[in-house]
């Protein structure tokens, strides 16, 4: 089975993409979970549909328009949050359906184009190209490099923002960077998981790791391992049973979460 699996280049690329996205999302997810930003991730993913639609309408590769639009949304979200003029939850709750609806309407403006909404919503990992892989890798190196450099500051911010500010951490600047990099990771992961499932790939590994870790470092390590194991196992299962890869990866991760929930330490 594995010989067949590995003999097709498109399957090799799909597996590589799943491994990279699984790891990158899981590690970024640690700071999403501990900053209580799961809703932000969903907003970023939903906004991608508008970005994709703009690309299709103006004849530019949808990845790039989705990336630019995602980064703009990320900056806007942090700005709204920092000003505190509107409740962030309310703003995101309004923005998410707006971005989805706008995306669908924009896609309908393109005459003669029938959008494959299923692939946008749930991913199409088998269509990943070598260029896509390089883009995922570059975004992964950027985002994980940043996390590594500012690891302790990010932990401090997630734990106690006020004291982190007093200690000299530029928390507003860090918020912008975290959201911008997160938006890039979300957009780069869409081909594997799609708009609906990418949030799960980011949140579930870290939430599972939190159940069993004895300290923060273990959360990071376990989250990375769960992201990798979930992605690879999900890819193999989706191949064996001929099912949607993104959905099977997420179901595998949910299974892992349930196991860690039973084994959890903080009861």
């Amino acid at each position: 089975m594995f010989e067949t699996f590995l003999q097709y280049p498109f399957l090799q690329r799909a597996m590589l993409a799943a491994v990279l996205v699984g790891l990158i999302c899981a590690l970024m997810g640690v700071f999403v979970v501990f900053n209580k930003m799961a809703f932000f991730v969903d907003a970023l993913a939903h906004s991608a549909l508008t970005g994709i639609a703009i690309g299709i309408l103006i004849g530019v590769a949808p990845f790039w328009t989705a990336l630019v639009f995602g980064v703009l949304v990320a900056v806007g979200v942090v700005y709204i949050k920092s000003k505190g003029k509107i409740e962030t939850d309310t703003a995101l709750g309004l923005f998410m359906p707006f971005a989805m609806a706008l995306g669908i309407l924009l896609l309908q403006l393109k005459s003669g184009y029938t959008p494959d909404l299923m692939s946008f919503l749930f991913g199409s990992v088998l269509a990943v190209s070598w260029i896509d892989l390089i883009i995922i890798l570059v975004i992964g190196i950027l985002s994980l490099g940043w996390l590594y450099t500012y690891y302790k500051d990010l932990v401090f911010m997630a734990f106690d923002r006020e004291s982190a500010l007093v200690s000299g951490i530029k928390i507003n600047q860090m918020d912008y960077w975290l959201m911008v990099l997160l938006s890039m990771v979300v957009i780069a992961s869409l081909q594997v998981a799609g708009i609906i499932l990418v949030g799960a790939m980011i949140v579930i590994p870290a939430a599972s790791a939190k159940n069993i870790a004895r300290n923060f470092r273990e959360v990071v390590v376990y989250s990375g391992i769960i992201g990798l194991v979930g992605s690879v196992t999900g890819m193999i299962l989706s191949y064996v049973f001929d099912l949607s890869s993104g959905a099977v990866i997420v179901m595998t991760m949910v299974g892992i979460y349930l196991v860690t929930f039973v084994l959890r330490r903080n009861q």
């Binding site: 500012y150 690891y151 302790k152 500051d153 932990v155 734990f159 982190a164 200690s167 951490i169």
Partner: peptide, 8 residues
């Protein structure tokens, strides 16, 4: 240990 910082 957070009080020591990483980037400082």
């Amino acid at each position: 240990g957070l009080g020591c910082g990483q980037t400082r």
